[in-house]
Structure formats: C-alpha cells, structure tokens
C-alpha cells in the first residue's frame, strides 16, 4: 500500500541524516546520550508532522511569494508548543542538555525542506505519512549516533554500564568525537550506496590502430 511505500521512502531511501545530510546541528549536538537523542527526535518528529499537516491544509491559502515567512511562523508556533510541553513534562536534566536546540528545531533544514518540497504540494494524508516516515528515519539515525557516542564515550547505554574493562574515551562525547562518528558513518553509507549501484564499464568510441586492425578481421 502506498502508506508503507511512503514511510519507507522517508525513513530509508531519503533518510534525512545519512542520505540528504540535512539538519546536522542538533544531530551532532544532542546525541551525547541515547535518552537525549530519543527526546530530540520525538520533538522534531512531532513538530514535523504537525507543521506538515497544517501547511498542507493551508496550501491553497498561502501565496507562493510569501510562503517562506508563512512556513517559518507555522513551524515556530509548533516549536514553541513543543518547547513548553518538554519543559513541563520532561526531567530537568534532559531539558538542560537539550538546551537551545529545542527552539533551534525551527530552523532545522529537515522540517523546512519537507514543508517546501512536500507539504506545500501534496494532500494532508500524504504529508502526514511523509512526516511520520521522515521522523522514523531521523529517530533511527539519532539513536544510532547517540548509541555509538554514549557506548564509546561514557561507557554506558541508557545509563547502564556496558563494558567493564574499557575505559571510556571522553573525546567521543565532545565535539571532535561527534564529527568523527558522523564522518565515518557517512562514509559507510556512501560505500553501501556505491556498491549497490552496479557500475557498468563505460565503453566509448576508441580508435582502432594498425595493430587492432590486423588482429581483428574487418566486420562491416
């Protein structure tokens, strides 16, 4: 069914972090622990779905010339709601480590890009499913990165210690570790993409020299 196909496209084929390479700022900043990564992805997904639905519902009312400021205000409103809910219901530690990156969801290229490319041009149902699909992809990406960084950098997973003998490399939970992890992961995904693409050896017009003409009998 088209729902399943759309979800898969948003999550895998056009994964926002590893394929489109969008919205990297919060991805690298909050993935220090899995809990943080999880809540950031949940917040971003909720904002994405909500703004996709509203923009899709209003798409005939929004003139093309001022669509960017309209998107901005709609997304900002939902981000404010998300921020207030998180401040009210999530533990203090999570809010403090997420810091300014919750309001920064408003300039997350993923949400902007989906609004521009998808919600503005498609119906409500499609936009909703697309938002959920991209959100799932984003959640997966954040969990992967934060899992690696927490395990290698703090020696824990979800707060529980993982190894007994390996002293954690604190660099992984700091800035350089983040860049290292994303660089290597992008390289791995690129390699997967390249190997999947079957590369036919491209043949083009090559001149026949006297040697080749002598070796091969002329075929008309």
């Amino acid at each position: 069914m088209w729902v399943y196909r759309e979800l898969l496209r948003g999550a895998v084929k056009e994964n926002p972090t590893f394929v489109l390479v969008l919205g990297l700022c919060p991805t690298l900043a909050v993935t220090v622990t899995i809990v943080n990564g999880f809540w950031m992805a949940v917040a971003a997904t909720c904002v994405l779905v909500a703004s996709n639905v509203i923009i899709s519902a209003c798409r005939r009312l929004i003139p093309s010339e001022i669509r960017i400021p309209c998107f901005v205000v709609i997304i900002a409103s939902f981000v404010t709601i998300a921020e207030m809910l998180m401040k009210a219901y999530l533990p203090d530690a999570v809010n403090r480590s997420l810091g300014i990156f919750v309001p920064l969801i408003v300039v997350n290229c993923i949400i902007f890009g989906q609004a521009e490319a998808y919600a503005y041009k498609n119906g409500i149902a499609r936009s909703l499913v697309d938002g959920i699909g991209v959100g799932i992809g984003y959640l997966g990406a954040l969990l992967l990165i934060s899992g690696i960084r927490e395990a290698l950098g703090a020696g824990t997973l979800l707060g529980m210690p993982v190894w007994s003998t390996y002293p954690p490399a604190y660099i992984m939970v700091m800035a350089p570790g983040a860049f290292l992890v994303i660089g290597i992961l992008l390289g791995i995904f690129n390699a997967l993409k390249l190997s999947r693409r079957r590369r036919q050896p491209r043949a083009a017009a090559a001149p026949l020299t006297s040697r080749e003409m002598a070796a091969k009998p002329e075929t008309a």
Binding site: V21, A175, P176, G177, A178, F179, L180, I182, G183, I184, L186, G187, I188, N190, A191, L194
Partner: peptide, 14 residues
C-alpha cells in the same frame, strides 16, 4: 570514493 565530499570533510572538522 566513499569518503569523498562530506565524510572526509567531517573527519577534517574533527
């Protein structure tokens, strides 16, 4: 080939 572009740029950034 797989590291060209963004991946190697990120390693340099690290």
């Amino acid at each position: 080939e797989a590291m060209k572009g963004a991946p190697i740029a990120f390693i340099c950034t690290a």
